[in-house]
Computed example of a mutant assay.
Amino acid sequence: MAVVVWIVEGTWPACVDAARAHAPEDADVVLLYVTPAEVPGVAHGAFAGLLGRGRPDRDPGTRLADLAAASAGELLQAAADRLGRPCTRTRRTGRIEHEVVAAAEGADLLILARDGDRTHLGPRSLGPASRFVVDHAPCPALLVWPEPAPGLSTMPPPPPHPPHHG
């Protein structure tokens, strides 16, 4: 069994705990971290266009890319330590939701966390990237709450129904 665990700042412990609880001991677990490609690119562009042609040593895009790589490595290490069993750590760069879906191709399970409004039950508990991943996942997806789920009283009311004419 191949299990992909999407590691994101702030919600990763719940995903790792779900893998520990739901993935068989002999599962091939992949811890996946995706760095958005646009952040260093935007910084590179701003620096080149506005600030400093000819001074590549001062380009903030390079520094941001280095910080992102270090952060990804630290997060993946912490996730592997929490998982407490052999796993593969994978880093991808690009459009986050597309990279997660691509990484889940051929997997038996994808584990991800809610990342939107987690004070209420309902569709807003998913942010845009996780909504895309849930809608396009090429395998079963286990969607977890990073903290205890809110009560049923937070569920939005049903939409009004038009009257029936008979």
Rank of each mutant, 00 (worst) to 15 (best):
M1N: 12
V5G: 02
W6N: 04
W12S: 01
A14S: 07
A14L: 02
C15E: 11
D17Q: 14
H22P: 03
H22T: 10
A23P: 11
A23Q: 10
D26G: 08
D26R: 11
D26L: 10
A27C: 00
V29H: 12
A37C: 02
E38C: 09
E38I: 11
V39W: 11
G41L: 13
G41P: 03
A43T: 02
A46T: 14
A46V: 15
A46Q: 12
A48S: 14
G49C: 01
R58S: 13
L64Q: 11
A65G: 08
D66R: 13
L67A: 14
A68H: 13
A69N: 03
A69M: 05
S71F: 10
A72D: 01
G73M: 06
E74F: 08
Q77L: 15
A80S: 06
D81Q: 12
R82S: 05
L83G: 11
P86K: 04
C87A: 14
C87W: 02
R89K: 13
R92G: 02
T93R: 13
G94W: 10
R95D: 11
I96A: 05
I96N: 01
H98D: 15
A102G: 05
A104Y: 00
E105N: 12
G106P: 07
I111R: 05
L112Y: 09
L112F: 06
R114V: 00
G116H: 06
G116C: 04
L121N: 06
P123S: 12
G127I: 03
A129W: 11
R131I: 01
V133F: 05
H136I: 03
P140C: 08
P140V: 02
L142N: 00
V144M: 07
V144Q: 06
P146S: 09
P148D: 01
A149P: 09
P150H: 01
L152W: 07
T154S: 14
M155T: 14
P156Q: 04
P159G: 02
P162K: 04
P162W: 01
P163L: 08
H164L: 12
